[in-house]
Design a protein around this nucleic acid. Structure first.
Length: 462
DNA sequence: TCGACTGACACTTTTGAACAGG
DNA sequence: ACCTGTTCAAAAGTGTCAGTCG
């Protein structure tokens, strides 16, 4: 199991009144199914993105501990570009194919249970199963928009807040897991990944060797069969013989393709996995290339707590600036680089809510929730809060903004979204960090939808 | 010509409504 | 009237593949 290293409050602005006891806890956020993730990561995880939106597999699932049981927390996920490049799959390996395309509208997936007491988050693992990825920049469903052939990794944000509105005064704690990085694709490039997905994703059972989906295969034309045979040969070759030079052989060996079972790794095996994936080596040399905003800008607002990986991950987490980003430049290892320096020493991020909110009664704002009998707010509860906002009302303190919610009651605002950035430029406190984006002056955040449309963290979107 | 992308397809799991029984 | 468990159809999630597009 992994846990993040020492917890640092990532809040630099005026601190909440009095010492925040929540920052002193031993909050742990661990990734579930790490072995599965590692298996994928060892090959080079790919995630399909489609216009209507595609779930991730493996999907993000985390365990939380160390939270204040009676305090409410909000859990979010967003996707961060790994670097400033676009990639292509060429001859069994990923190669840089140019600079990254301009970042699509950043969106943050809010866990539908949010906000919920710490006891709820700790009760069982928290799944982001319904998080969907899309390549449709005009997506109206609130899915997370990514570019195909670009690399990303999910970040988890934990916010102690009673509701969305109090997020503004809350402290973000950010976590990421090296093994969850992936390449967004519209069609699988690496046949090994395809096989892994088929073997582990129950929905793809029909494509397993022993599956019943033979009719379709029988319908294939000879050319397809031949092609598939080639693929199969390649796969077998890869599995049985040497992996392509740019793949981490040792890591892939851990995957028994025939059995389809997760590798049963012993602790001692981790040494073999020092270079975890085609990307691992890149990490060793890698760079976060110049982005319009620049790494500095991206680093300013939050403290990302990279979850310490086992020893085997160390090289992955080390990287330097100014070297080739090519994932295929796997040779060589330098374990002496800075530990994801781009994520360190950040000024804490402070989320904001629409200015209008400041006028609303702060009955449930910062500070510990009173530890009384608390009912777990079901998604409906949360929805109810949001519905208050969505429904015009005359009640004082109740915001009557229109919040776009593509979901039903259960999923209202499960994914924050809204109109494109052109319509809703970044909020004030972020504009300075968006030198290349439309700077908006005198803008008032009209509602949560508008606010949530913004990237929560400037460096996640340039 | 080629690579990226799209949509239809067959298959699977999940979900929820309808029903029966206690 | 309620609760629980079962059944079944619809919905949703998969990778495959042929075709389209730039």
């Amino acid at each position: 199991m992994q846990s993040f290293r020492d917890l640092k409050p990532n809040f630099s602005g005026p601190p909440p009144a009095g010492p925040d006891p929540y920052l002193q806890g031993n909050i742990r956020l661990t990734l579930e199914d790490p072995d599965l993730w590692k298996t994928f990561h060892g090959i080079g995880t790919e995630m399909i993105i489609t216009k209507p939106g595609r779930r991730m597999f493996p999907h993000c699932k985390v365990n939380l501990s160390g939270l204040i049981p009676c305090a409410k927390y909000i859990l979010l996920v967003d996707m961060v570009p790994e670097d400033g490049f676009r990639y292509k799959w060429n001859k069994e390996k990923w190669e840089v194919a140019g600079k990254a395309e301009p970042q699509p509208p950043c969106r943050t997936y809010l866990h539908p249970d949010s906000p919920a007491p710490g006891s709820h988050w700790m009760k069982q693992s928290v799944s982001f199963l319904k998080l969907k990825l899309t390549n449709n920049t005009l997506d109206q469903h609130g899915h997370i928009i990514l570019h195909s052939m670009h690399r990303y990794h999910p970040r988890f944000h934990l916010v102690q807040a009673d509701d969305l509105f109090s997020v503004r005064w809350s402290v973000f704690q950010t976590f990421s897991f090296p093994e969850t990085s992936f390449t967004a694709v519209t069609a699988y490039q690496n046949t090994k990944i395809t096989k892994l997905k088929i073997d582990h994703n129950p929905f793809a059972k029909g494509f397993r060797e022993e599956g019943t989906n033979k009719k379709r295969r029988a319908n294939k034309n000879p050319a397809s069969l031949e092609k598939r045979a080639k693929m199969s040969d390649t796969l077998n070759q890869d599995s049985e013989e040497d992996s392509p030079p740019d793949f981490c052989r040792s890591s892939y060996e851990g995957y028994d393709a025939e059995e389809g079972d997760l590798p049963k790794r012993k602790e001692g095996d981790t040494v073999k996995e020092e270079r975890y994936s085609p990307w691992a080596a890149e990490r060793e040399h890698s760079v976060r290339t110049e982005s319009p905003a620049g790494a500095d800008h991206r680093d300013m607002y939050n403290t990302e707590q990279l979850v310490p990986a086992p020893a085997s991950y160390q090289p992955y987490r080390f990287h330097e600036y100014g070297k080739s980003p090519s994932p295929s430049s796997s040779v060589g290892s330098s374990s002496s680089g800075s530990i994801r320096s781009s994520f360190e020493s950040r000024v804490p991020d402070v989320a904001t809510v629409p200015d209008h909110d400041s006028s609303k009664p702060r009955t449930q704002e910062v500070g510990p929730s009173s530890c009384g009998p608390q009912h777990l707010p079901a998604p409906q509860d949360y929805t109810g809060v949001l519905n208050m906002s969505m429904t015009p009302t005359n009640k004082p303190g109740v915001i009557s903004h229109h919040i776009y919610s593509p979901y039903g009651a259960e999923q209202s605002l499960g994914q924050w979204n809204g109109p494109g950035p052109a319509q809703y430029p970044p909020p004030h406190h972020l504009t300075a960090e968006y030198p290349t984006q439309a700077v908006h002056h005198g803008y008032h955040h009209g509602n949560v939808a508008e606010w949530s449309q913004y990237p929560l963290f400037s460096y996640s979107c340039w």
